[in-house]
């Protein structure tokens, strides 16, 4: 029983990190219609920024905030410098995947050239342990869940109740109509890239904080669960991605506690395959229609 409780606790922490990342990935995908494989590179870069800042003695909160900002800027920069020019040329969604994977490859290896292929660690978890009814969490884990909760609430409010959020949702459903209604698509898409980058940055920093030893390739394994969560909830639906992240985060940790821990991500993959076989549009599918990329 205690094993299950502690697995649930770890599951909630994983779900928190995963929800930030999966929602960021899905938000940008649904607004810009570009499947950005460099998302993981942005997570990795921001994670290392946070690591560097914390090792240099900076406050944990400030380090995570700065890392998120770096993620947002990187994301906006990649979109402005690489993706938008290709989309303006009329590159199809099919071609854009190759553009984004090339960008991911370049980014990933520039980071590796900078930090090396070795493993890094934050050392012993800081802060007091917190005991909630048998559920023992470290201070870092509580912080992680708190940050994720705040970010998810902010994303929800932003998407549902602000003008910009409404424009983003309009753009994700029908870009031509949104443009005809006077939505400044270029600006909204750029902001969506920035917001998605902030979530990627926070996700990367939290992922590294939560992982005992991490390296440049940690993010690429996390891609398994991000994609599984995104497909699980229905491609392009931020709410679906959030629910998918919650379920998969807990499911992978619980399965990992009872099975080979290294293979917990494979559980997410098994769920992904099952969803593809049973309900290829995802459990909470909204869109995933075929449409042009917007630039």
């Amino acid at each position: 029983m205690t094993e299950l409780v502690s697995a649930l606790g770890f599951g909630l922490v994983t779900a928190a990190i995963l929800s930030v990342s999966a929602v960021g990935f899905t938000l940008q995908y649904s607004v810009s219609n570009v499947l950005n494989l460099a998302f993981v590179s942005i997570m990795t870069a921001s994670g290392f920024v946070a690591y560097g800042l914390i090792v240099a003695g900076l406050n944990l909160w400030l380090a995570i905030a700065l890392a998120s900002l770096v993620g947002g800027c990187l994301s906006a920069l990649i979109n402005w410098g690489i993706y938008t020019p290709f989309i303006r040329r009329g590159t199809s969604t099919f071609g854009m995947v190759i553009v984004t994977i090339s960008t991911a490859l370049i980014g990933q290896n520039l980071i590796e050239a900078a930090v090396g292929p070795g493993f890094f660690s934050f050392g012993v978890a800081t802060g007091r342990a917190v005991d909630v009814g048998g559920l023992v969490l470290t201070g870092d884990q509580v912080i992680t869940m708190g940050i994720a909760l705040v970010l998810m609430a902010a994303t929800y409010v932003g998407l549902e109740y602000t003008r910009l959020g409404r424009a983003m949702r309009a753009l994700s459903v029908n870009p031509a109509l949104a443009r005809a209604c006077g939505v400044d698509t270029g600006r909204v898409v750029a902001l969506a890239w920035f917001a998605s980058g902030v979530l990627a940055g926070a996700g990367g920093a939290l992922l590294f904080l939560d992982t005992a030893t991490f390296s440049v390739t940690t993010g690429s394994y996390f891609l398994i669960v991000i994609i599984a969560a995104a497909v699980f909830g229905g491609v392009g639906s931020a709410r679906g991605a959030f629910l998918g992240a919650l379920i998969l985060g807990v499911a992978t940790e619980v399965a990992g506690a009872y099975w080979i821990p290294e293979l917990k991500d494979v559980v997410a993959f098994a769920v992904l395959v099952a969803v593809l076989l049973v309900r290829p549009r995802g459990l909470f599918s909204e869109i995933a229609t075929l449409r042009q990329a917007v630039g």
Partner: peptide, 8 residues
């Protein structure tokens, strides 16, 4: 198709 293609 890759550079100017229809969006499918």
């Amino acid at each position: 198709k890759l550079s100017e293609g229809a969006g499918s």
